[in-house]
Design a protein around this nucleic acid. Structure first.
Lengths: 195, 195, 195, 195
DNA sequence: CATGAATGAGCTTTCATTCAT
DNA sequence: AATGAATGAAAGCTCATTCAT
């Protein structure tokens, strides 16, 4: 049983994280401040410090929250599929769909990953993150399984997964792109690539 | 004729821009401040305000500088090539080579594009930038020419260029990637894709 | 009869006071905060506010506690002695011994006396404090009795007591001092002074 | 030649230090804040940070300023005297006179010494400070010279100097004390002690 | 052209205190 | 009697910018 107190705390923490996500999207990571997050959440600034050990801690928890959301969405779509080809298609479709249906989440994730740094000033995008890598590993695993079963041809799976991930990420940046069309085309090209 | 004053001014501006690039790489866009750039350039903070109308202005000029550097490097490699296939290969090779030989420039460019926002809080990565688009257009042009000359098969050139650009960008984020190998593999796969 | 409730209350209050003494020694009066005292006592911050009307109230009770400890220690050693000379020696010995055997208490006392102020910003070391003055009065009484009985020569007892008190206090500040030697020497000199 | 710029800076630094001294006396070390010092000096808070690297730095410079003031006053009175006895008398007279004529300085010095701590939380009164020790050494030197010339009798000079220093310091704390009388009496007693 | 002095706003963090439970 | 949640104020510090020189 979860005590009432820890329930309140958990609810508050999630409320703060969601406010952080909104503010990050609206004004950008570089301009985010605790007072603005507090304002968005209609609480006092001090309450954020009460529930998180500091700004870094809040950002890290927000990143974890966002990574888990993305992971559970995509892996949920891929899991039920049987063959590597089906899984690969599902992976691409789900990845792009997530960017459309969870725009705010996706944008906040990008903002954090490309802006946050460790206290030693190492950029987050140069660190190995479990959740981020989890999606990479899922994709690589699909590609390898496909090669083992001879459904896919011979290619370097790591390079291929990087290409696919890059193509997915890039779609967000090209405002001219129609996501449905892009998704279909990307699947066609990728299938041509791996078959 | 360029006056002596404007010559000094130009030299100063470039000195400041280069210092800004270094500092952005070292501590990240979100942590950059004019005093730190001034320190790196061994000048007073006020001098930056004298040569640029503000922090935003300096960032914008730095971005333009970086975009032009990248553009001239890549287009310089692509230009001499004759056939679309050769041009495509040269584009990919040059793009990845630039990331390796101009790491600091590339990193600063990424930092700015993914962090800076207009005064209205619109992220730079959602705006159409002339220089950024210039590379996109060059790539799309290569692809279209190749399709016209029947060297390339039928595919949506906009989607394809987004995929290629994404694959190039992503390489920077995957620390495990060996750039030479990645470049070769990517060319193979892209050729398979377009042929 | 003391009720169970007030017994618990008293125990809590002493627990908090002792935690306050420890924290004051460790980080200094100027840096002390209720949360840190609560942490040291393994209780919630709110509980301190429940048992004391505020931070000032806690400090005042801590000061009273420390003054009483010192007073009972020293007066306990002096009381049994018979002659003024014996009492004077006992006073000096006990005063210096207390600083050695109750270092933490002594240090916390000094920290509070030299740092705390009334709400009107009057420093505690400029106020007449009953317990602090009690020791002064004891010493002056000894000196006067000795003059009355002709054991001591003629001198201004108030000045002499201030000198003796100062010599005792100062010993704490000179890290080179060996307390046993200092105590012996001080007694010699004081006896020479009063005889 | 001192440049005009460094002159302005020096004047500002001294102005800030003097404001700090006043505020420390008025509200006590534990309550001092940069905004209050700035208010007293009629400048912005940021300007203090511009001239000093931080609050600690300002406090340290204030302490140095106060120590040097005291040292130059006392050593200035002692220096011209010829015999150890004369020097000893001058030392005591000057020490107590300084406390009377420079009450604010003396109080601020006491506040800092008894309240400030290093970043590692070591109290200043447990550290060896050059200026503080300078006065101690001057006194000990006087005592030793007097013993060498047989003007003074045999005693432990370190203990004696601690006693004298303590007697001087304590005078500040006893509000009943008349300083002139105290000075005279103390000299009498000390001379009796050393002769 | 260049500097150093100066300001005011903003940030992160900590604190004393209150209150519902 | 005791806790945890919450607030508002204040702290130290850094910043972007301006300005006199």
């Amino acid at each position: 049983m979860v005590s009432k107190q820890s329930f309140i705390t958990e609810a508050r923490r999630e409320q703060i994280i969601k406010a952080a996500i909104d503010v990050i999207c609206e004004i950008g990571y570089a301009n985010v401040s605790l007072p603005q997050i507090a304002k968005k959440a209609n609480i006092s600034t001090g309450l954020i410090s009460y529930h998180f050990s500091g700004k870094d801690d809040l950002i890290n928890h927000t990143l974890m929250y966002l990574s888990q959301q993305e992971w559970s969405y995509i892996s949920g779509k891929v899991g039920p599929k049987q063959t590597p080809t089906e899984k690969l298609i599902a992976f691409i479709e789900a990845s792009i769909a997530y960017q459309v249906t969870h725009q705010v989440n996706n944008m906040a994730l990008v903002e954090i990953v490309f802006n946050a740094r460790t206290p030693e000033r190492v950029p987050y995008y140069k660190i190995e993150d479990n959740e981020k890598d989890a999606l990479y590993e899922l994709l690589e695993e699909i590609l390898c399984k496909g090669q083992e079963s001879k459904e896919f041809c011979v290619f370097n799976p790591e390079v291929a997964s990087t290409i696919i991930k890059g193509a997915i990420s890039e779609s967000m940046l090209n405002s001219k792109v129609n996501f449905e069309e892009y998704s279909e085309e990307l699947i066609k090209i990728v299938l041509k690539m791996v078959k």
